[in-house]
């Protein structure tokens, strides 16, 4: 197993606010790393900083051995990082088909085969192929956002709160898709629902007030009642 992504003491400012104040984490190839922490801890900003959308003001980010800290977002994405934002950011007036087409870096045979595979993970998308993104349900939008990131052969996927606001039955199918994706790619997942996170995660990084508090194997955190109570409010 090799280290695919490393953040070292990353600081990020958004306007006058100092959001990330020393985030460090690693993601091993083939694993799911879950970012945990309270609301406003800096989990979403961490993902945005990796993508270059909220660039780091200090610290370093290495991906696949390359320093990507100062790269523009499109270069980071083209390096093989897929991003599923918290608000899904589906292109509302584009159809499901068009949403996927915009995302596809190539439109060759391999890409089409991959699209077919993605549609087996999210069969609803096939059903609503010609429907505009804005007219999909919350769960379908989430699936489209994930499919859009997965339609390319990305080595790393950043997925931000995929279960947020979804019905339990939809959450289960989203999590099932993540488990399937895990077989093919490395994932960094932000997830508030601890039982979901524990079910899919291999490792965790706990962030509090914009700072990494602790990292380790997920099974250790599951057993550590004190840590969960202090930082996640889980009794």
């Amino acid at each position: 197993m090799s280290r695919l992504l490393t953040l070292e003491n990353v600081h990020t400012h958004i306007g006058q606010y100092h959001i990330l104040q020393g985030v460090s984490l690693t993601a091993e190839e083939g694993e799911v790393t879950v970012l945990l922490g309270r609301n406003g801890a800096g989990k979403t900003t961490t993902l945005r900083t990796i993508m270059g959308l909220s660039p780091a003001t200090s610290g370093t980010i290495h991906y696949n051995g390359q320093d990507i800290t100062k790269l523009p977002t499109f270069s980071i994405a083209n390096g093989g990082i897929g991003y599923v934002p918290e608000d899904q950011a589906v292109f509302t007036t584009l159809t499901v088909e068009e949403n996927l087409k915009v995302a596809m870096r190539k439109e060759d045979e391999a890409a089409m085969a991959r699209q077919d595979y993605v549609l087996t993970l999210f069969p609803d998308l096939k059903k609503f192929w010609k429907k505009e993104g804005g007219h999909l349900s919350g769960g379908q939008k989430q699936m489209l956002a994930m499919a859009r990131a997965f339609v390319n052969d990305n080595r790393l996927m950043l997925i931000d709160e995929p279960s947020k606001g979804l019905a339990p039955i939809v959450i289960e199918s989203v999590m099932e898709a993540i488990r399937e994706m895990k077989k093919q790619t490395t994932i960094i997942l932000v997830e508030q629902n601890f039982s979901m996170a524990a079910g899919v995660g291999d490792t965790y990084t706990l962030i509090d007030d914009g700072e990494t508090v602790q990292s380790g194997r997920m099974e250790e955190l599951v057993r550590d009642e004190e840590l969960k109570r202090t930082y996640l409010g889980i009794a």
């Binding site: 977002t73 994405a77 950011a89 584009l94």
Partner: peptide, 13 residues
Amino acid sequence: AGVINKEMVQALG
């Protein structure tokens, strides 16, 4: 797509 969400377009490469 850029009219709707420029940031996401960049995040797609």
